[in-house]
């Protein structure tokens, strides 16, 4: 019955309100269909025009040769075949998966660690949370430029290494370092969001539970493993799912930090879509690449949902 619990993970902290259906407000058997349509009309029209229509168009376009200007012609599955047989595109998919595999666990680990740490101090929690949240709200372009200055040869890291008498690697130009540099920068800028999600969940755990366990002599580590983590597991599921979806779409970091290079070492799917569409002007091929990205996201999300029964605890 509940829409929220089937289509989406229930809200971790507000799970009661999220998983229960809306109350039946009006007394009697009156149906408010007509006013409801009035209230929802602007959103529905907007979503239809700017979400449903583009999705349909995108599917159509992916089967066409669709230059930005000029003749369009049906290509059938030609765009997909070209992409999937192209070594460059396969490398791009691989890069995207690699970035995600490196970024996601790091992000979750750091955000959970910092959230737990902040929750354990007695004063200044709010200030600390605001501090770690800053790069989440500052423009990604500015964040990336800051790190470009830090990474660039002769830049801050290089300068530190030189004054220590060490040779710093070329963080952005060396294929062995470029991806790691991208991941590190992204974790710095992005983990604050999940930290807040976890903080909200941690604040929702009744203090009495941990106090009782503590009085019973349960060690801090056991309390973390057997009380805290299970109680925030819905948040962890939510955070990992949403972060996964957004991680697959990384764009500004490779675009401005490495330009996808060196070579194609850090070219990701959305960067590829952008270049295919708006540098090579092949919108059909770009749409097809976007569908490959979408398929990838759906696949991984489905795996996540299938696996959640094993570790996500909604009963607390």
């Amino acid at each position: 019955m509940s829409v929220s619990s089937t289509a989406r993970p229930p809200a971790p902290s507000a799970s009661t309100s999220a998983s229960t259906p809306a109350p039946r407000p009006s007394r009697g058997r009156r149906d408010d269909l007509v006013p409801a349509l009035g209230f929802t009309a602007p959103s529905m029209l907007g979503l239809a025009l700017f979400t449903a229509v583009p999705i349909g168009m995108s599917l159509v376009m992916s089967f066409y040769s669709w230059p930005i200007i000029g003749e369009r012609s049906v290509r059938g599955v030609g765009n997909y075949v070209d992409l999937l047989t192209s070594p460059q595109f396969r490398r791009v998919v691989l890069n995207t998966v690699l970035f995600t595999v490196l970024y996601l666990p790091l992000n979750l680990l750091v955000s959970l660690g910092i959230a737990l740490w902040v929750a354990s101090v007695r004063r200044g929690r709010q200030a600390l949370r605001v501090i770690f949240f800053i790069p989440v709200v500052t423009p990604i372009v500015a964040n990336v430029l800051v790190w470009r200055m830090i990474y660039t040869p002769g830049g801050a890291l290089d300068g530190l290494a030189q004054s220590a008498g060490v040779d710093a690697p070329n963080f952005l130009g060396d294929p062995r370092w470029a991806m790691a540099s991208l991941v590190l920068m992204s974790v710095w800028q992005g983990f604050g969001y999940n930290m807040l999600v976890f903080s909200a969940a941690l604040d929702g755990i009744p203090a009495s539970i941990n106090e009782a366990a503590s009085l019973d002599g349960v060690s801090a580590w056991s309390r973390l493993r057997h009380i805290t983590l299970p109680m925030i597991s819905p948040s962890m599921f939510f955070a990992s799912t949403m972060t996964l979806i957004t991680t697959f779409q990384v764009f500004a970091q490779p675009y401005l930090l490495t330009g996808g290079g060196p070579g194609v070492a850090t070219e990701t799917l959305v960067l590829f879509v952008y270049r295919q569409g708006f540098a090579s002007f092949a919108l059909g091929s770009a749409a097809a690449a976007a569908w490959v990205l979408f398929a990838l996201i759906l696949l991984v999300t489905a795996v996540q949902f299938a696996g959640q029964k094993k570790w996500v605890n909604y009963d607390v």
């Binding site: 989406r8 700017f50 979400t51 583009p54 999705i55 879509v273 979408f294």
Partner: peptide, 22 residues
């Protein structure tokens, strides 16, 4: 409302190409 929620799953980046055409 379920339909509304499903649209949350669709990343903006996927819509950029058709949105440009629109």
């Amino acid at each position: 409302f379920g339909v509304f929620l499903v649209t949350l799953m669709i990343p903006q980046e996927i819509l950029v190409v058709p949105m440009f055409s629109l």
